[in-house]
């Protein structure tokens, strides 16, 4: 029997993040320009499996996706004693991404991220733009209006995994293939207790970036912003408003996509992503 085995390789890296020793799981495939992918809140790096299995991408890019500590197959930090409320802050998120890039000695990688992973790219572009060769921010804005009380995500009388998955189920486009929508939701159902809520502390409380992105140089490091038309959390209007404040930022509104383009409707997403990767390749060839 011929068995299809994917080219994705998963490994664990041990290094400190903000002074705390962590065992971080990451997956990768391909070779060439490093392309580091940041998953959405409450999920993990499996969201990028379709990019890692596409030879048109992996022929020129080394695609890497790590699970944030507390997510997926990355444990909490080694000194965790069980009595700590998990909260992702802007500062910790920046340090987490930079620590991964330094641990793997990635030289001026391309950074791609969705939702919280998209928002943090704006802060990275502002704070460490020279350390990256391009930013691809999906479902990203400097701020967006909350649409539910996050206390429902973590309480004793509501199953955390079920409510997280059910809440985000409506953030997928109805045209996205059912199989991929369900895979996307399954990650939310598998999240650790309070983790999605802790990620949203960054999103809702600690990262209002309005008026604070003055140091982004999109000429030096291109910034692409792509948002799905069905994303009512980070709406197309949120993204366009943000991009209007950043000279040189390029915006695309994606048809038939929601909040999880890389995992909910991956083939459709690639029709938007490939031209951008082509531009990045051309730019790299010129430099």
């Amino acid at each position: 029997m011929k068995v299809h085995i994917e080219p994705i390789v998963g490994r664990y890296a041990h290094y400190a993040i903000d002074g705390r020793q962590c065992r971080v799981y990451f997956e990768e495939a391909g070779q060439g320009i490093p392309l580091v992918c940041m998953h959405t809140a409450g999920a993990d790096g499996r969201q990028f499996r379709h990019m890692m299995c596409d030879p048109k991408i992996t022929a020129n890019f080394r695609v890497l996706a790590f699970d944030l500590p507390w997510h997926g197959k990355s444990y909490p930090p080694e000194d965790w004693t069980g009595d700590e409320e998990y909260r992702l802050s802007t500062d910790l998120y920046v340090k987490t991404i930079m620590a991964f890039c330094e641990a793997l000695e990635l030289e001026r990688p391309v950074a791609l991220g969705s939702s919280i992973g998209g928002r943090i790219l704006l802060q990275l572009a502002h704070q460490h733009g020279e350390r990256f060769s391009a930013f691809i921010a999906l479902e990203a804005a400097d701020h967006q209006q909350p649409w539910y009380d996050t206390s429902w995500l973590h309480r004793g009388d509501v199953h955390g995994g079920e409510v997280c998955a059910a809440l985000v189920s409506g953030m997928c486009a109805p045209q996205s293939p059912l199989r991929y929508r369900m895979e996307t939701l399954w990650q939310y159902a598998q999240g650790g207790p309070g983790i999605f809520k802790g990620d949203l502390w960054f999103y809702r409380v600690d990262s209002d970036l309005r008026g604070k992105l003055t140091n982004i140089n999109a000429e030096r490091t291109p910034l692409y912003m792509l948002t799905g038309e069905y994303d009512f959390s980070c709406t197309p209007e949120d993204t366009m408003r943000t991009a209007a404040s950043i000279p040189g930022a390029k915006v695309t509104i994606m048809k038939e996509e929601g909040h999880f383009p890389m995992s909910e409707n991956p083939d459709n997403f690639k029709t938007y992503l490939m031209p951008i990767l082509g531009e990045i390749l051309s730019r790299a060839a010129r430099s």
């Binding site: 209006q145 809440l167 409506g170 953030m171 486009a173 109805p174 069905y230 009512f232």
Partner: peptide, 16 residues
Amino acid sequence: ERFPAPGLHDIFALAK
């Protein structure tokens, strides 16, 4: 609708 328009496809989108 079979494919509701953006913003009308989810009860929270409607509520927002």
